[in-house]
Design a binder for these strands. Structure first.
Lengths: 136, 136
DNA sequence: GTAGTTGCAAAGTGTTTGCAGGCAG
DNA sequence: CTGCCTGCAAACACTTTGCAACTAC
């Protein structure tokens, strides 16, 4: 997938019931044109690369909104910060412990066997597999 | 496994090259007698239930030491705090999203197929599987 | 003595919140 | 007008650090 135009991004937001304001469009564009995993701080920096256009509070609020509306996923992998993942299709991750970088693992080929039945009264919300790696 | 005596705990520490001071023994005893997943704050509270005997800094420092010496494992599953897991044998976790509680999944039955080869120059450090669950 | 350990308080980090002002329909 | 959105600064929660006092051999 290549960088999205501003129009494509506003459509994407509308499809997720998110009113496309200037700031939200800018944040979504950062995430969806690079298709990488970013922390809130990194997104703040990227959005404001040229001129400061979006405040810290708005970045955090917007990312929370995006997660609620299932436009992006939260990745909990590093104790010091949350990563946001614009790829919501089923997939997993390599996490490079030394550099803190994340790489996608396509989810379609993966199969997990031997999982026990879920505790009584609960349903699965998702399965996250993180393969921690380090330099040889 | 049942609660460990103080002697068993000091042996355990020595086997992991950790000098068994009073505070370290107390912290290890909390973890290994309950065999649950605790955050640093919870451990601080449990250790000091009767009289305040161990300081916050020491709890954090000691837990870091335990992780380095591979006496316990860190679990990164909740964005707001790190959990410490006294079970270092291969296993995975149910994470109840609503309550924040963790349950072990025995690792011996689990098999994951379809994982791609690791990126060039890296080695696997471990695989964490988290099954997020919520109430039906 | 000397090296390792502890604990207080202060600093740090990433994140959230309260609230006033702004903007769109 | 009205309700949603934004942004500043202050507040927060968890964790780390600097450093002096302490302990054990």
């Amino acid at each position: 997938m290549q960088p999205l135009s501003r129009n494509e991004v506003t459509d994407l937001l509308r499809r997720h019931q998110i009113a496309p304001t200037y700031q939200r469009t800018a944040i979504a564009q950062v995430l969806f044109s690079r298709r990488q995993h970013f922390s809130a701080d990194q997104i703040l920096a990227l959005v404001n690369e040229q001129h400061a256009e979006v405040s810290k509070a708005t970045v955090y609020n917007t990312l929370r909104l995006f997660v609620d509306k299932q436009l992006v996923r939260e990745l909990i992998v590093d104790p010091t910060r949350v990563f946001y993942d614009p790829n919501t299709s089923p997939h997993h991750h390599f996490y490079h412990v030394e550099s803190g970088s994340l790489m996608d693992i396509d989810g379609t080929a993966i199969e997990v066997t031997g999982l026990p039945t879920l505790p009584e009264g609960t349903v699965a919300d998702g399965v996250d597999i993180v393969v921690r790696i380090r330099n040889r």
